[in-house]
């Protein structure tokens, strides 16, 4: 890019989204496919192993589509385990919205993947994530981004 960038508003997010953790305009066939892509990005960015992706899928098959936390937004995650190498986030924007089965908030256009090593050390990241996803303007900018660099500039 080469452009000077302003001071980060979300320094913990900027760190949590490692290189190769963001994918824009993906085509997912169904919710499992969408969750898998978020998991694969955590693996590709060095934050988890493929076993963790399996636990992300199990969480949804066990407890249902509660992970769709707001209109169009899913937060996919498994439980802290040895499959988590380091705290991390991933992000997938979907070219076509996908139905997850959540009546209030379907269809999903944005999937955030999360892996954490325990129940508390990612709290600063979650606080920033709540602020970021709670802002409709930020979410729209993510959904309209044409590449991952545009999304990174938002953090």
């Amino acid at each position: 890019m080469g452009l000077p960038r302003p001071v980060s508003n979300f320094p913990a997010l900027a760190k949590a989204f490692a290189e190769n953790s963001i994918r824009v305009g993906a085509i997912a066939l169904d919710r499992e496919h969408a969750i898998e892509m978020a998991g694969e990005l955590l693996v590709a960015s060095g934050r988890s192993t493929p076993e963790y992706t399996e636990s992300m899928l199990e969480a949804v098959s066990e407890n249902g589509p509660y992970i769709v936390i707001a209109p169009g937004i899913a937060l996919a995650h498994g439980r802290p385990s040895e499959a988590v190498l380091e705290i991390g986030l991933s992000l997938v924007t979907l070219a076509q919205p996908v139905v997850f089965g959540n009546e209030a908030n379907d269809p999903v256009r944005l999937v955030i993947g999360l892996c954490a090593t325990d129940h508390s050390s990612h709290i600063d990241i979650m606080a920033e994530l709540a602020g970021f996803l709670g802002d409709a303007g930020s979410v729209n900018s993510v959904l309209n981004a044409v590449d991952s660099d545009q999304i990174r500039l938002l953090f």
């Binding site: 992970i67 999360l114 709290i123 979650m126 709540a130 709670g134």
Partner: peptide
């Protein structure tokens, strides 16, 4: 409360 206690429930805790 969420399935694992690390993601969804943490966001809910913060906003609550």
């Amino acid at each position: 409360v969420c399935g694992m206690g690390i993601g969804t429930s943490v966001l809910l805790k913060m906003n609550a």
